[in-house]
Structures are given as structure tokens and as C-alpha cells.
Simulated scan of single mutants.
Amino acid sequence: MLAEIKGKVSRTGSNLSERLEDNLTGNVFGALRYIPFSEGIGKILANAVTSSDIKSCIHQINIQYWANVIGFWPYDQDGELDALITFEDTIIGIEVKFLSGLSSVDETDSIPTEESKHQLGRESRIISRKGGKKNKILLFVADRHMCRSVYQDIKDSKHDIIEKDVMLGYVSWQDFLHELKQLNGLDPFQQIIIKDLIDLLTRKGFEDFIDMNVNRAPIVHGNAHFNFAVSHHVEIDFTTDQSIHEELYYELNR
């Protein structure tokens, strides 16, 4: 809905297949605006992000109503973040990926930070300029494999892609879904929102695996499987009184 309101999806929906990430961003982060920050998205991001410094910053954000501090796809000359959340002491930029990769990367490691065309590098410049003296965070949200690959490429780069005053972290959709399932203490209306988001991300294929609970009801039906039985009567013969006829054998003496 938000993607359409913001013009990311055409009125007829004809370009929806090309805007899956924008639609996913609007559906997930738009819906979470209806839940207090500290009880919803704050818990999810703080628990799912890998950086301890970022965890600490998010945990310190003490706010309930936050729909007025998040902007979707804000325009900037350096690019377009999917979401920008501006708190009193912290600014969080969010870049979402679903099926596509980064829109641009640097062709060589010799490019200065301020001239980098790397998508996350450009977005870090946006956050650096807009953040002032706030804590500045850039979060990359994508499939776990893509998160790790992109993050490692940036860390292995010979030059600084991310602005020095911006903390880069990532949240995989798999971990995002897991943290959604851990939310508790919500009212019935908020639980409906979370249930819908869990169903959405599960349908997108972000379920990690089925748990290894062996106490589930059996899936084998007695009238639909083979029955193997073992006889309880077993006879073992250890007879040792066999007679030996000497003339029928050779005897070797040393």
C-alpha cells in the first residue's frame, strides 16, 4: 500500500513485478509503524543485527510512537534509501533487498570514499550529512547469504566505502522473521499485524528450517505402512561332541 501511495507502484500495478523490494519494504516497515518502537521494530533490529555497537544504540532508543520519524524513499542527490528513521540522538538508514543485488559497485579499489559509486557507500554519505552529531547507522536488510557476502566484500575492500562516522550492520530476512516470532506482550490487534508479517515473510521463503521437535504426533498411519515382525523363538546349536576319524585326515608333525 505504501509503495503505491509513494508512487513506487503504478496505479494499475503493471510494474509491481519490478518493484518487489519497494512493495516488501512498505508492507513490512509500514505495518510495524502501528506497534510501539520499543515493543516491535526496535526489538527486532536490536536482536537481529550482528554489530554490538549498533545493538547498544538501538537499545538506548526509548520511544513508543515513531510513525512521524520514519520516511520512505527520501530523495537525495546521492541516492535513495528505502527508509530513513530520525530519532533525537540516532539516525538509521535502511536499504532493503529481495531478489536483486546492489544497484552499483566500484570497479576498482583505488576510488576515494567521497567518489565511491557503491550503493551502500553513497547511502552512508546521505546518513553522514543528515545525521549531524547523532549516532549514525546504515542497516542492510537482505537474504542471509547476500548480507554476509556484501558485508564481507566491503570489509575486504582496500579503501573505505562507508563513511567513517557511519556504523554499517546487516539484518537477514531469516533473522528478521525469527525475531517477529519472538515478540510478546502485544495486544490482540498488534498480534494480527505480526501474524500477517510472519505469514508474508514465510511465503517469501525466509523460513530457516522446521524445528527438530521429536514429540510431534506421528506422521505414519498404522493402516498405510508395512509391518515387520521378528520371531521370539530362536534356536542356537552349540553341539561339540562330533566324532573325528583319524584315518580320514593327514597329520603333520614337525
Rank of each mutant, 00 (worst) to 15 (best):
I94C: 02
N62E: 10
W173R: 05
E207G: 06
M146P: 05
A46L: 09
T25E: 04
N135A: 13
A142N: 11
A67K: 12
I198W: 00
Y34M: 08
L248D: 13
N184A: 07
K164V: 15
M167K: 14
K55M: 02
Y65F: 04
M212W: 10
R254G: 13
S100W: 09
S149N: 13
I92C: 01
D153Q: 15
N253F: 14
E246A: 11
E235W: 11
S17K: 12
D241K: 14
T12G: 10
K8Y: 02
T12V: 05
L138G: 05
L45G: 07
R11H: 07
F228Y: 12
V9D: 04
D165T: 08
F37V: 00
E251F: 12
L252D: 12
D241T: 13
M146K: 15
A31L: 09
H232D: 14
I111E: 10
T240P: 03
D76A: 00
M1S: 11
L138E: 05
R144C: 08
Q119S: 06
K43E: 01
N215G: 06
D175C: 09
E115N: 10
Q191G: 13
V105G: 01
D175G: 00
F226I: 10
V230M: 01
L168P: 10
T50E: 06
S14L: 12
S116T: 15
K204M: 15
I41A: 06
G93Q: 02
A67P: 00
T86N: 04
F98A: 11
L102Q: 03
L180F: 14
Q191S: 08
E95Q: 14
E107P: 04
G30N: 10
V166I: 01
R203L: 15
Y75P: 03
K117N: 12
P74C: 06
S51Q: 08
T50D: 09
A48C: 08
G13I: 08
I44A: 09
H159W: 01
G40M: 03
T202W: 02
F228M: 07
E18P: 03
D165C: 06
S110E: 15
I198E: 12
H232N: 14
V220C: 06
F209Q: 05
L197W: 15
W73C: 09
L81S: 05
Y170T: 03
G7S: 04
W173Y: 13
R254H: 13
G132M: 06
E21D: 14
E247P: 10
R19Q: 13
H59Y: 11
D196V: 10
Q152P: 00
L16I: 13
I161G: 04
Y34D: 12
V69D: 04
L252M: 09
G42W: 03
G71I: 08
K155C: 01
